[in-house]
Amino acid sequence: MSATALSVSGLTKRFKGSAVLDDVYLDVARGEVVAMIGPSGCGKSTFLRCITLIEQPEAGFISVAGKPFGREVVGGTVHRQPRRAVDAMRPKIGMVFQALNLWPHMTALENVVRPQVVVLKRSRDEATARAQKLLADLDLADRGDRLPHALSGGQKQRVAIARALAMDPEIMLFDEPTSALDPELIGGVLALLKDLAAGGMTMIVVTHEIGFAANVADRVVFMHGGRIAEEGPPGRVLKQPGDPRLQAFLSLIRPAAAEAV
């Protein structure tokens, strides 16, 4: 078993000539929680879309639990993996989209059951049992038979999380999990992420919640201009930022705190 859940090296993505991701390296250890922060357009979301291969990066290697994903080196040359191999790896990376992207024609339960049946070839009974357990853990035991549009924003999000968890991922990715929620729900979601982290789940959370980054993350990664500009334990990165761009970003995001100082 590899101690590294996710390893990214040399990841580069260009849009119309300009690099949105510029030679990014990141290793995430098993059980580690990484909070990724940075101004909008810095490449955080593109980073998540590239390591899930929604977008095809121009260069770079990704591996999940020690296994290559997307590109691999065979006999000294770089090969694109066949689609089947890519699809087979995908369940290992659980992604919770900012827009959630639940399937509106399926009930909450079916959203969690169907991918297990289709992708992991679990029996319907096994998949249903797993889904019901997850929904119960996430306080959704009595919501399984509802269609997504009949659920609140917070409930929808928990269904999306359950859907990803049901695939037994090595790592969970969250794209701004709190940005689409009403303010009073944010605390609940952050508590849920904290529980997941306490349960040993490896996570990358793209977020604007500096509080979450400070309290839950093992490491904070600050992205700027498609590169990782600064990273380290939250205590150091958030309290004594070295990079002037990070200092500027933090003062923008915490104007009240900055003024108080």
Binding site: I54, R90, M95, A164
Partner: peptide, 8 residues
Amino acid sequence: ESARVIGM
């Protein structure tokens, strides 16, 4: 996208 990312 969410269907592809989950492995379909």
